[in-house]
Write a protein that binds this DNA or RNA. Structure first.
Length: 443
DNA sequence: AACACGCTCAACCGCAACGTG
DNA sequence: ACACGTTGCGGTTGAGCGTGT
C-alpha cells in the first residue's frame, strides 16, 4: 500500500505554523473548502503537506473551536466518557461541542490523568489503586470499597452507554414500527453489561421477569448509595467523579403509544421528549400496553437479558455486602423507616423476583424480619429510593406510576433531591451519548 | 542571572480504516 | 477481490514557557 510521502521527503516545511501560513490556509478554505487535503497546499501556496494542513485546520483554525480552560462540566464529561470509551478521543470529542480530540487528549494526559492518579484512581481502568491514598490514610476498607464502586461504575457506564446507543438506534426504527416490533426492540435493550459472562447471567436468570421494573429501580437505589460513599471516601477530591444516581427505569412517552424507552430523554425525533427526564419512575408505558409487552420480556431467550440485569444487580449487592459506612443522621432516620417498613406486612406480597432480592439483602436470615447489619448492609442504600422500590413492587401496574409520582412529590425531601440528581444525570448522559456529534467543520 | 526541571500543547508519526476505480 | 490514495485516529515528541534553586 502506498504511503503518502512525508514532509521531509519532499522538502516541505514542518514545525509550528506562522501567522502568514495560517492566514493562507484560512483564506483558501473559506473560499474553496478544503477539498482534497493532498492537493490543498499547492493550491493555497503553502509549503506544507496536506496532512499538516488538515491537522492545523481541524485542531486550531476551524472557526467552531472553543479554546481555553475546560469547565468542570467538561471535565466530568471527559472522565465519564473516558471510563466508557477509553482513549477513543474522537468519540469523546463528538460529545464535547467545539473541543477537538487533540485538545481533549492533551487535557486528559496533562491534567485529568494526573489528578485521578493523585486521588489513587488508576486513570486507565478507573479503578482505585489498592496501594494508593486511601491506604496511606489507613483507610484500606474505603480503598476496597472504591475498587468495588469503580467496578460497578465502569460496568454501569458500559451498560448505560449501550442502552442509550441502542435506544437511539431503535428510536428511529420504532417510529415506523408497530407495537409488536417495539416489544422486541425493548427486550433487546435489556442486555446485560458486557462485563458479565453468559454463564453468570444464566446462573442468575430469574424465572419471572415481571419484577423487572423492581430490578431496575433497585439498581437505581444501589447506585444512589454508592455515589454517597464515593464522596465520603476521599472527601472533596472525589467530588469530580460523582455522577448522580443512575436509574435504568424508563418512563413512558406521553406522545407515543409505545412503551418505548428510546423515547426517554431524547431530542431529535421526538421534540416533545426533548432532553427532559421523563418524570415517571416506571418502565411501563401507557397502561393498555403494560400487560401486553411485559411478558414478552421473558419470551424465548430474551429472558436471558432480563436475567442479565438481575445478575448485574445481584453481583453489585453481594460485592458490597461487607462494606460498612457511617450513616448521616438523616440516613439513620431513613434507615429506621425502611427497617420498619421492611419488617411489616408489605413483604408478604412480594413476587418471586423480589423474594430473590430479599435473599440478597438478607442472605443469612430470610425470615422476613429485617435485622440491621445482618448480611447485607443497608447502609449502602438511600432508603427513600428503596421505598419507591417497595411501593412499586406492591402496586398494581396501573398504580405504579402514581406511586412513583407520589414519591417524587412526597414528604421525603431527600428523595426529591435524589430524583433531581437522577434527572440531571440522565439528562447529561442522554445529552452526551445521544446528542448529535459536535458541529463538524463547516466544509 | 543562570541553570535545571517540569509542564503544556501544537504538531508530527505511523497505523488502520475507508473510499474508489 | 485487489491495489492504491485519502482520511481519521491515537500515541508520541519537542519547542516554548514558567517555576524553583
Amino acid at each position: 500500500m502506498g504511503r503518502s510521502p512525508c514532509c521531509e521527503k519532499v522538502g516541505l516545511k514542518k514545525g509550528p505554523w506562522t501567522p502568514e501560513e495560517d492566514q493562507k490556509l484560512l483564506a483558501y478554505i473559506e473560499e474553496h473548502g478544503h477539498g482534497s487535503w493532498r492537493a490543498l497546499p499547492v493550491k493555497a501556496g503553502l509549503l506544507r503537506c496536506g496532512k499538516s494542513c488538515r491537522l492545523r485546520w481541524t485542531n486550531y483554525l476551524r472557526p467552531d473551536i472553543k479554546r481555553g480552560k475546560f469547565s468542570l462540566q467538561e471535565e466530568q464529561t471527559i472522565i465519564q466518557l473516558h471510563a466508557l470509551l477509553g482513549n477513543r478521543w474522537s468519540a469523546i470529542a463528538t460529545h464535547l461541542p467545539r473541543r477537538t480530540d487533540n485538545e481533549i487528549k492533551n487535557y486528559w494526559n496533562t491534567h485529568l490523568k494526573k489528578r485521578l492518579a493523585k486521588m489513587g484512581i488508576d486513570p486507565v481502568t478507573h479503578k482505585p489503586k489498592t496501594d494508593a491514598l486511601c491506604l496511606v490514610d489507613g483507610q484500606s476498607k474505603n480503598a476496597a470499597t472504591l475498587s468495588h464502586m469503580a467496578q460497578w461504575e465502569s460496568a454501569r457506564l458500559e451498560a448505560e452507554a449501550r442502552l442509550v446507543r441502542e435506544s437511539k438506534l431503535r428510536s428511529a426504527s420504532t417510529n415506523h414500527s408497530n407495537s409488536n416490533n417495539n416489544k422486541n426492540n425493548y427486550s433487546k435493550l435489556l442486555q446485560p453489561p458486557l462485563s458479565f459472562s453468559a454463564t453468570q447471567i444464566q446462573q442468575q436468570q430469574p424465572k419471572d421477569c415481571s419484577g423487572l421494573p423492581l430490578c431496575l429501580d433497585v439498581l437505581k437505589v444501589w447506585q444512589g448509595g454508592w455515589q454517597n460513599k464515593i464522596m465520603r471516601c476521599n472527601g472533596q477530591d472525589l467530588a469530580m467523579l460523582e455522577s448522580p444516581t443512575s436509574t435504568l427505569s424508563f418512563g413512558g412517552d406521553n406522545n407515543s403509544s409505545l412503551p418505548n424507552p428510546a423515547a426517554v430523554g431524547f431530542g431529535g425525533e421526538n421534540p416533545a421528549a426533548g432532553n427532559e427526564f421523563v418524570e415517571n419512575q416506571m418502565m411501563l408505558g401507557p397502561s393498555d400496553e403494560k400487560e401486553e409487552y411485559l411478558p414478552s420480556l421473558c419470551d424465548q431467550d430474551e429472558g436471558l437479558k432480563c436475567g442479565g440485569v438481575y445478575s448485574f444487580l445481584q453481583q453489585a449487592l453481594r460485592r458490597s455486602s461487607s462494606q460498612n459506612f457511617p450513616l448521616t443522621a438523616n440516613e439513620e432516620e431513613e434507615k429506621e423507616e425502611v427497617t420498619r417498613k421492611l419488617a411489616g406486612n408489605r413483604l408478604e406480597k412480594v413476587d418471586g423476583l423480589f423474594t430473590s432480592l430479599q435473599d440478597m439483602v438478607f442472605p443469612a436470615d430470610n425470615s422476613g424480619d429485617f435485622k440491621a447489619g445482618s448480611g447485607f448492609n443497608m447502609e449502602g442504600f438511600m432508603s427513600g429510593d428503596l421505598l419507591v422500590v417497595l411501593a412499586d413492587a406492591h402496586s398494581e401496574p396501573e398504580n405504579r406510576l402514581q406511586s412513583s409520582n407520589d414519591q417524587i412529590s412526597g414528604e421525603n425531601a431527600r428523595a426529591n433531591t435524589t430524583e433531581e440528581d437522577h434527572k440531571s444525570y440522565w439528562n447529561n448522559i442522554f445529552n452526551l451519548v445521544n446528542s448529535p456529534p459536535a458541529a463538524s467543520p463547516i466544509f
